[in-house]
C-alpha cells in the first residue's frame, strides 16, 4: 500500500461538541495503517491541548490524557498555529507536553508539538495528500 500524507485539521474546542474526541479516535485508528500522519491545531482547536483539563464535574469522558499516547503510535508531527494561540493569550507552556521517543537517536525523548506561523502551516497543508477536517 502506498504511503500517503494525511493531515487531521482540528478547529473545534474540546468539550462543546464531539468533534475533538472523534478526531482523536480516528487519528489513533488511522495510526495503525502506517501512513504519514500530521495533526494541526488552529482556531479554537488549540484549546484541545490545554493542560489541566478535568471533566469530573461535568460528567463527560476526560480524553485529554489520551493525547499523550500519540507519541507511542508514531504520531509526532503536531503543529499548533502561533496566531491562534496568541489571540487566546496562550503560549506553548500552556499546552500539554507531548513527546515521542526517536528510535534512530538512541530513543531520545523529543517534543511532538511544534508551534508554527500561519505561513508555515499553509506550506504544511499544501504538502498533504489527504486532509480530514474536524
Amino acid at each position: 500500500m502506498a504511503t500517503k500524507k494525511f493531515l487531521y485539521l482540528n478547529r473545534r474546542p474540546p468539550h462543546g461538541s464531539i468533534y475533538a474526541l472523534e478526531s482523536l479516535e480516528v487519528v489513533l485508528i488511522g495510526a495503525a495503517f502506517e501512513q504519514e500522519v500530521t495533526l494541526a491545531f488552529i482556531d479554537d482547536g488549540v484549546y484541545q491541548l490545554l493542560q489541566n483539563q478535568d471533566t469530573s464535574a461535568i460528567g463527560t469522558k476526560n480524553f485529554a490524557p489520551t493525547y499523550r499516547a500519540l507519541g507511542d503510535y508514531d504520531v509526532n508531527r503536531i503543529f499548533v498555529e502561533r496566531e491562534s494561540l496568541e489571540m487566546r493569550g496562550l503560549d506553548k507552556d500552556d499546552l500539554m507536553p507531548l513527546t515521542w521517543e526517536d528510535e534512530d537517536d538512541d530513543w531520545a525523548e523529543k517534543d511532538s508539538i511544534h508551534v508554527v506561523t500561519s505561513a508555515e502551516l499553509a506550506e504544511i497543508i499544501d504538502q498533504q495528500d489527504v486532509i480530514l477536517s474536524f
Binding site: P13, P14, H15, L50, Q51, Q53, D54, T55, A57, I58
Partner: peptide, 23 residues
C-alpha cells in the same frame, strides 16, 4: 460556571478579575 472552566483547563486565577464563579 466553575465546572466548565475546570473541564477546559482554565484555572480560577487566570479568570478576569470580578467574574464570579458559580457551581
Amino acid at each position: 460556571l466553575q465546572p466548565d472552566l475546570q473541564a477546559r483547563g482554565i484555572a480560577p486565577d487566570t479568570v478576569i478579575d470580578g467574574i464570579q464563579l458559580v457551581d
